[in-house]
């Protein structure tokens, strides 16, 4: 996703200052996607160029409030109604690492699997602790990360079972 769609979603609830957008963006993503204020203003100026947002007058402290435009609203609507394609996601280093570990000579593949599984479980434990006491939008963000980590664990279990059954393993 792009930061711009997140900002549009926040602005659809009313006009906001840049610093407000930053704080609310981080709050609603469970602080899992930190933004710096520079990113926010760079994104806002590109959105202004593209006609998605309109700046108001500067206040006495030099702050500008941004509002969503009609065009911004239809862009946001398009974003919500379009599913994310799998191919838009970055390649997974772990998948490549394991495929290479199986191919390369002298690698303890089962050791690679176990080390990763322990590390992913620690990450899952951290996410689960963070989820306790999170409010609803944050909780859904943590749940998503938990499901992804869980899928990785299942895949690692699967790899271990497949490797155990494979004759190559005993070489």
């Amino acid at each position: 996703m792009s930061i711009r769609h997140g900002l549009l979603a926040l602005l659809s609830q009313g006009a906001r200052y840049g610093y407000q957008l930053r704080a609310e963006f981080e709050a609603s993503t469970g602080a899992t996607w930190p933004l710096n204020i520079g990113q926010v203003y760079t994104t806002l100026s590109r959105m202004e160029r593209d006609g998605l947002v309109a700046p108001g007058e500067q206040d006495e402290q030099g702050r500008v409030v941004y509002a969503i435009t009609e065009r911004g609203r239809s862009e946001l609507e398009r974003w919500f109604s379009t599913p994310i394609a799998q191919s838009d996601r970055p390649r997974d280093e772990l998948v490549i690492k394991l495929a290479m570990a199986v191919t390369a000579p002298g690698v303890d593949v089962r050791g690679v699997v176990q080390a990763q599984r322990s590390a992913t479980m620690r990450a899952l434990q951290t996410l689960t602790r963070a989820k306790r006491g999170a409010d609803l939008p944050q909780r859904l963000v943590y749940d998503s990360m938990i499901f992804q980590a869980e899928a990785e664990q299942r895949w690692l279990d699967h790899c271990e079972a497949v490797l155990g059954a494979s004759p190559q393993e005993s070489q």
Binding site: Q114, M121, L124, L127, I146, A149, E150, Q153, R154
Partner: peptide, 12 residues
Amino acid sequence: SRYAAWADRVVY
């Protein structure tokens, strides 16, 4: 693993 993650320690 999603449920095991609630634990202080996970043993395989």
